[in-house]
Amino acid sequence: MQPFTRLEARACPLGLANVDTDQLIPARFMSRPRTAGYGTFLLHDLRFGPDGAPVPGFVLDDPRRAGARILVARRNFGTGSSREAAVYALVDYGIACVIAPSFGDIFASNAVKNGLLPATVTEDDAESLLAAIEAEPETPVCVDLTAQTIAAGDRAIAFAIDPVRRLQLLNGWDDIDLTLRHAAEIAAFARTRRTEAPWIVPGHGG
């Protein structure tokens, strides 16, 4: 996984609360293999009408947002299903950071595992950031994970992130490699668990 330290890019305002993972990627696209890329499915049903034609004025397709790598939204971003495909759609589209007052727990965890930064800001800061990028679409926003700050024009705001997730992003760590170093402890725990609670291993069933 690529480490994330600092990002300077244009930002897209998505001024909605409770943007659920069904919006981020509708379920019908998730049977596709990832190889072809999930970017075109991002926010698909908000972005395209029932006839497949682009919804006029949808923020992702605003030319002034071209190349945006940051998304700013309202509270409870990524609520809903555990589909990691929601993160794949964001990442494949080019988004590397989502800024919002709160995130769905599973979404935030999935995000970090794919190098996407979920940056938590206060409701007030989210509103001010939304206003700033609405007003000046082409102004780059700078997200610094080391300092945990966001700069947009002359605004500077702090963001929160779980310290462990921050380290994982900064270092581009892969969980599985870290875990496999504890193989002996895991094996010992498994033996004890099976002895103390033998019913955890199901019978052969019906």
Partner: peptide, 20 residues
């Protein structure tokens, strides 16, 4: 609790998960 695809792979391979 529900987990994402990266965590599913982690559980398949290690029968464990990191949690806070």
């Amino acid at each position: 609790f529900g987990i994402g695809a990266s965590e599913v792979a982690h559980v398949l391979m290690t029968q464990t998960l990191w949690q806070r």
